[in-house]
Design a protein around this nucleic acid. Structure first.
Lengths: 100, 100
DNA sequence: TTGACATATGAGTGAAGATTCATATAAAAT
DNA sequence: ATTTTATATGAATCTTCACTCATATGTCAA
């Protein structure tokens, strides 16, 4: 592999890990693990401001981590693919099972 | 599981993912994948200031990601366990193989 | 023991990023 | 049509964090 590609790959990997490296975002992902939820439900569940949640959802949308559908005035979010689920679960188990 | 524990677990997971969410740190980890290297070698390989590298190494040390031994005036670093290697490689392959 | 080299570290700076605040948009209800 | 409810978003603020700069520590060589 070229050095350029190597750099690009590392940078992509950083981007991926960054998704999971914020408390609010990870709680959203953790919640959405369990199904689909409206912004309201997410906001209530995480006890965080609606605005903060919406900003993070925008981020996750832009990164193709979540998808959404509209239902009346509500917007229902869910995880985009299992891809994300997998990485989250692997990290979660590593972080919790293997204490040093 | 209690809610307290859940929160703690998520926070631990965030910490874990944060390790991998910086370009310099990830390059260090990627390099150390290949064996042990002195600070000098790391500094040269990553073309970054010695100070910046040392600061990140301190972080990685504190998080038990790397271990080190002294050899004369040199300090030789290597990865602490396979644990870290695994997560890095999983993230790396997800980030690079599965393009959207 | 003095000087050169390797690494570590505290303080300061700057940039990225997460939250708040105010407000916009859009759909439903009255 | 107007009000209420749900969500989104721009700007400002505040925080986190990575880097630089200066300097400390420690080891070897002369």
């Amino acid at each position: 592999m070229s050095n350029e590609n190597k750099i690009t790959n590392i940078k992509e990997t950083v981007k991926l890990f960054k998704i999971f490296s914020d408390y609010t975002r990870l709680r959203i992902i953790d919640l959405l693990e369990g199904g689909e939820f409206s912004v309201q439900e997410i906001t209530d569940a995480l006890d965080t401001s609606q605005s903060a949640i919406s900003h993070q959802l925008k981020l996750l949308r832009d990164l193709h981590v979540v998808k959404f559908r509209k239902e009346g005035k509500q917007v229902i979010y869910s995880l985009q693919d299992n891809h994300i689920k997998e990485i989250f679960l692997i990290g979660y188990s590593h972080a919790t099972e293997c204490k040093d």
